[in-house]
Amino acid sequence: MLKQLIKAFFILNLIVASTALWAVIEIAPLSNETLEGRYRELIEELRCPKCQNQNLADSDSPIAADLREQVRVLLEEGKSDEEIVAYLVHRYGDFVRYRPAVQKTTMVLWFAPALFLLCALVVIVVVVKTYRRPKILQGELSELEQNRLEALMSAKESGKTTSDKEDRP
C-alpha cells in the first residue's frame, strides 16, 4: 500500500514538473549559464505586445518569437537587463513591462493598494474606538436633571424600604 502511494506520488510529481516543458521550445541555449538565467528572467517579465495576457516566455505568436530572439541577441552583445528593457520599451511602450516602472503615470498603480490599506486601518481603528468607549455623560447635570435624579434616588430608597416591609410575611 505504502509502496503504491510512493509510486503514485512520484508519478504525480513528474506530471506537475512536466508542465515546464510545455513552454516554448528554444532553438539553442545561450553561450553561458548566467546569460541563460537572465534570459529566462527577462522573457518571464516582458509582455507579448500581440497576445496581451502572456509574457514572451509563454507566447507562441511570431512576434513573441522575434522579441525573444532579439532579447537573445542583445544579451549576447553584452547589454544589461535595464538596457534590454529600455530597448523594448522604446519600441513597444511601457506596455511590454509586466513590472511597470515607478513614474507619474503609474503612481496610482503602485501606491493605491497601500493607500487602501491605510484607509482600511483608519476605519478599523475609528470603529473599534467608538465601540469600546464607555458612554460617559459629558459635563454637569442641569438643575432640572439634578432634581429629577434626586427624586428618583429618594423614591427608590423609600420604595425599597416599603417593599421590604410588604414582602415580609
Partner: peptide
C-alpha cells in the same frame, strides 16, 4: 526578417 518592423514596434 522584420528588422524594421521590430524597430518600429510593429506587432502585427
Amino acid at each position: 526578417e522584420g528588422k524594421l518592423g521590430l524597430d518600429l514596434g510593429v506587432f502585427g
